[in-house]
Write a protein that binds this DNA or RNA. Structure first.
Length: 314
DNA sequence: AAGACGAAAGTGGTTGA
DNA sequence: TCAACAACTTTCGTCTT
């Protein structure tokens, strides 16, 4: 049966209404070549199933040449809908039982068919996730190599099926966050949260999901990890940084670092170091870059001074 | 006047039943 | 799942430089 009757140009129809929610606010994402509903965000062009052939014939000759059997191609399926599916049944086309040897062969074929399909679904997900990752990464300004490992983390999570049921964006954000921690330049969760359109709870959930699912052994960020970044933002010298690190080391020897917010500790150490090195910074300034309050800096640094019996001739 | 201090009440996350 | 808990924040009045 020819599939070419009466459907010339059906694929050229302009989309004016969202098939999901009926909205008429239709947006075009030229960068990705998608047509998107302005209200529900669904990708319409990807969902439209064109019942006609994907080619057009202008002459009778072309029609004859191009006619063929099979469904039209659709980009909705990773294999463009052209694949043959190997059935699970253990009988052949005539209903006879297959020999054990043959059955094993079919089983192997089927396994690989399923596997390749999974792989392409991963590729499709990645195609969506990677631009997102780049966006988040460049907005909070993280270097290329960390992006790379964020991508690796995300891919692993994806392959483990951890992304299923969560939004791609939140998982990408979580991957970025974790990659930063892996590289010892942790960014606060809120910073990632502010550029990703994900609420904190969801983001934290995803982070834990990945941590548990991938068995990542990421050392918990310590105060020392924050020193250089904070010091740079405060334009404090290497001398101050060195002193701050010493302060932290002594403090942890005294066992007063456990359970405390490492950023608060780093902030307090920098405050003390600033005084010692003669480049004092106001608690407010430090609090700002460390994303903690002055009160926390005060509490920490009071405690350190008390426990270490330091003398700050101010 | 700016910065530092500390008390008190409030908030979000962890832990253990 | 819920309540208790510790750490941290917010707010605000006071003190110091």
């Amino acid at each position: 049966m020819s599939k070419t009757e009466g459907n010339e140009d059906s694929s050229n129809k302009e989309i004016v209404q969202c098939p999901e929610c009926g909205s008429r606010r239709i947006l075009r994402d030229y960068a990705r070549g998608d047509t998107i509903c302005g209200d529900c965000g669904i990708i319409i062009s990807d969902l439209m199933i064109d019942s006609g052939p994907e080619w057009r014939a202008f002459t009778a000759e072309e029609k004859r040449d191009r006619s063929r059997v099979g469904s039209p191609m659709t980009y909705r399926m990773p294999d463009k809908g052209l694949s043959t599916t190997i059935s699970r049944s253990d009988r052949d086309a005539y209903g006879r039982k297959l020999s054990p040897k043959r059955r094993a062969q079919i089983y192997r074929l089927r396994k690989w068919q399923v596997r390749t399909r999974v792989h392409s679904s991963i590729a499709r997900n990645l195609a969506q996730a990677m631009p997102e990752l780049n966006r988040i990464a460049s907005q909070i300004g993280i270097p290329r190599d960390i992006r790379e490992s964020a991508a690796v983390v995300y891919r692993k999570a994806l392959e483990k099926g951890l992304v299923r049921g969560r939004s791609i964006e939140s998982m990408v954000a979580a991957a970025v966050y974790l990659a930063c921690r892996l590289h010892k330049i942790p960014r606060p969760l809120d910073e990632v949260e502010s550029v990703a359109r994900v609420n904190r709870k969801e983001l934290a959930h995803c982070v834990r999901l990945i941590l548990r699912g991938l068995d990542l052994k990421i050392p918990r960020p310590t105060a020392t990890d924050f020193i250089s970044r904070f010091a740079n933002e405060l334009s404090m010298s290497g001398e101050s940084q060195k002193r701050a690190l010493e302060v932290i080391e002594k403090a942890s020897e005294m066992g007063i670092t456990g359970g405390k917010d490492p950023t608060g500790l780093a902030a307090a150490a920098l405050y003390i170091a600033g005084i010692l090195a003669g480049e004092r910074r106001a608690q407010r300034e430090i609090a700002e870059v460390a994303h903690v309050t002055e009160v926390t800096i005060r509490n920490r640094y009071k405690e350190i001074v008390r426990k270490l019996k330091m003398d700050l001739e101010v």
